[in-house]
Design a protein around this nucleic acid. Structure first.
Lengths: 127, 127
DNA sequence: TTCACTGCAAAAAGTTTGCACTGAG
DNA sequence: CTCAGTGCAAACTTTTTGCAGTGAA
């Protein structure tokens, strides 16, 4: 494991944020001035292939990568734009009960108004 | 509404399939030999802006367009690759009850083994 | 010396856009 | 004559890849 690879993993490990390849690239650029974006992609994809991190495919925005590899969903606040991890308990069982099929996996993305932006004090189940 | 625009809508209207812009392009090419892919995109996007059809953004595959504008989800069979419309009853209420937040919208995509491929006779709630 | 890792640049894939043209009204 | 709709080609965004160089063991 090279210094660069360690540094890439450290960035993800030390934050609950969701990083695009470019985020990681710019975060490391001061420390690795010759760093290339392609190299960042290559390493991030290698790590996610190894299940060390999770890659989240997105449709109309760059994919992001996160440290949290446990199953969870994502919620994007339509006010502040922040993406949060979100775990919906019993969702798989609920889906199975409703559609009566063998579910292999599923991907849920929620648009919502986060507690901070709603001004109210809702609690979210987070993981 | 031009002949081309009518023809594009007809293709979506007459099928429950999910069409990429290229699907539509090739379906119309015989009838409109000079047709350009960009024009197909422009019209499909115009129609979806007008809520006449629905555009479904996809992460690692071309977006598709469908006639069904009613809220529903999608399930992709991992065996045969077919995408089906799927309506999960009461899902929004279930999500609200679990995460206690104001949900604006959500997007659910399921990977599963469809009834035909599983060899069993499961019934799916479809819309 | 070796070879995994890297930088660089080009390519790939999907989609959008600028511009000139054309044809129906 | 006008101008909405079109074809064409180039641009754009995100991501991947081929290739040559390089640096640690």
């Amino acid at each position: 494991m090279t210094k660069l690879q360690q540094a890439i993993l450290e960035i993800l490990k030390n934050s609950k944020d969701h990083f695009t390849a470019e985020d990681v690239f710019w975060a490391l650029k001061p420390q690795f001035p010759k760093l290339a974006l392609g190299t960042v992609y290559r390493n991030l994809n290698y790590f996610s292939d190894q299940k060390m991190i999770r890659r989240v495919y997105r449709a109309d925005a760059p994919d992001f990568y996160e440290w949290n590899t446990k199953p969870h969903d994502h919620a994007v606040c339509i006010k502040c734009g922040v993406t949060s991890d979100l775990f919906v308990p019993d969702l798989k069982d609920f889906l199975k009960s409703q559609i009566l099929c063998d579910i292999v996996s599923f991907d849920l993305n929620i648009s919502y108004i986060c507690p901070e932006c709603s001004g109210k004090n809702f609690e979210t189940e987070e993981e």
